[in-house]
C-alpha cells in the first residue's frame, strides 16, 4: 500500500484572478481507491484534468508512476498515457464509432496487435465492464446513460492501465445501477490490481469502495479514511459527512 502512484506537490491552479488550488499536496497509493469530493466549484474535475495532463498546472509538480509530466519528453509522456485510463462523465465515446470500435481505438494506436485479436480483446473488455455482447456493434447514441458509462469504462480499460481516473462515475445512474457500478469498480480493482481515483458526489460510493477520501476545502485537500475525516473540525467536512445524507449513507453502510 505504501508505494506511491501519484504525487502532487505544491499545485496551484488559477483562472484569471480566481485561485482554485493553492499549494495543494496529494498522494495516491498503489492499488487504493481514492475518492475526490468537494463542493461545486472547488475544482475537483480541474484537479483530475490537471493530473492527466489536459491542463497545465500554474505552479507545482505532478508525478505519476514516478514520472514528472511537465519535464518528461514526448515519448515518456506518451508511455505514461498508456498506463492510465480515463472515464469522463458521460463516457465521452466517439459517436461515429460503435462501442467495440471505441474500445479498439487505444489498442489500435498503441499496440501492434492483429485486428482479429484486437476485436476479441475489445469483447473481453466489454464483458469485463458488465455489458452484454450485443451492445458491441451499437453506436453510443443507441445506448442508455448507464450503458454509455460502462462502455466508456471498457475503453478506459482497453490497455490494461495501472491507474483508472473516473469523473463522477455514478452520477445520473439509478441507485441500483450506481451500486452495481460501485461493485464493478471494486471487482476490477481486485482482479486487475488497479489504482482508482474517482471524483464523486455519491456518498454511498465513498462508503462502499473508497479506501481513502480526499476533500477539497480552502484550495487544498484533506485526505483520510472516512472515520478520520468525520472527526475533522472543518465545517464543510462536518456538514458533508454529518449532514442528513451523509449520516444515512454511513448508517446504510454500517448495516451491511
Amino acid at each position: 500500500m505504501s508505494e506511491t502512484a501519484i504525487s502532487v506537490r505544491g499545485l496551484e491552479t488559477r483562472f484569471g484572478t480566481n485561485v482554485v488550488h493553492e499549494n495543494l499536496d496529494l498522494d495516491v497509493y498503489r492499488e487504493e481507491v481514492l475518492g475526490l469530493v468537494g463542493g461545486s466549484g472547488t475544482g475537483k474535475s480541474v484537479l483530475l484534468n490537471t493530473i492527466v495532463g489536459l491542463r497545465q498546472p500554474d505552479a507545482g509538480h505532478i508525478e505519476v508512476l514516478g514520472q514528472d509530466m511537465a519535464t518528461g519528453d514526448a515519448k515518456t509522456r506518451a508511455a505514461l498515457r498508456r498506463r492510465w485510463g480515463v472515464l469522463f462523465q458521460d463516457g465521452a465515446l466517439f459517436s461515429s464509432l460503435t462501442v467495440l470500435q471505441n474500445i479498439e481505438v487505444p489498442l489500435r494506436f498503441h499496440t501492434k496487435i492483429s485486428p482479429a485479436l484486437r476485436q476479441e480483446l475489445a469483447a473481453v473488455k466489454l464483458s469485463l465492464a458488465g455489458l452484454p455482447p450485443d451492445a458491441g456493434p451499437k453506436y453510443p447514441g443507441e445506448l442508455s446513460g448507464g450503458m454509455r458509462k460502462r462502455a466508456g469504462l471498457a475503453r478506459a480499460l482497453a490497455l490494461d492501465p495501472d491507474i483508472l481516473f473516473l469523473d463522477e462515475p455514478t452520477a445520473g445512474l439509478d441507485p441500483i445501477g450506481a451500486a452495481s457500478f460501485d461493485s464493478l469498480i471494486g471487482d476490477l480493482r481486485a482482479s486487475l490490481g488497479l489504482t482508482v481515483v474517482m471524483v464523486t458526489h455519491d456518498l454511498d460510493s465513498l462508503y462502499a469502495i473508497c479506501d481513502r477520501v480526499a476533500v477539497l476545502v480552502d484550495r487544498r485537500v484533506k485526505v483520510g479514511t472516512i472515520e478520520e475525516l468525520v472527526r475533522e473540525p472543518d465545517p464543510w467536512i462536518r456538514e458533508y459527512f454529518g449532514g442528513p445524507r451523509g449520516r444515512q449513507a454511513g448508517q446504510a453502510h454500517d448495516r451491511t
Partner: peptide, 19 residues
C-alpha cells in the same frame, strides 16, 4: 491467487457471435 482469478475473469467473458 490473483492470476488464477484474472484467468477465470477473462474465461467468463463472452465473445459476440459472428454477425
Amino acid at each position: 491467487g490473483a492470476r488464477k482469478e484474472l484467468l477465470d475473469v477473462v474465461a467468463k467473458t463472452s465473445q459476440p457471435e459472428a454477425v
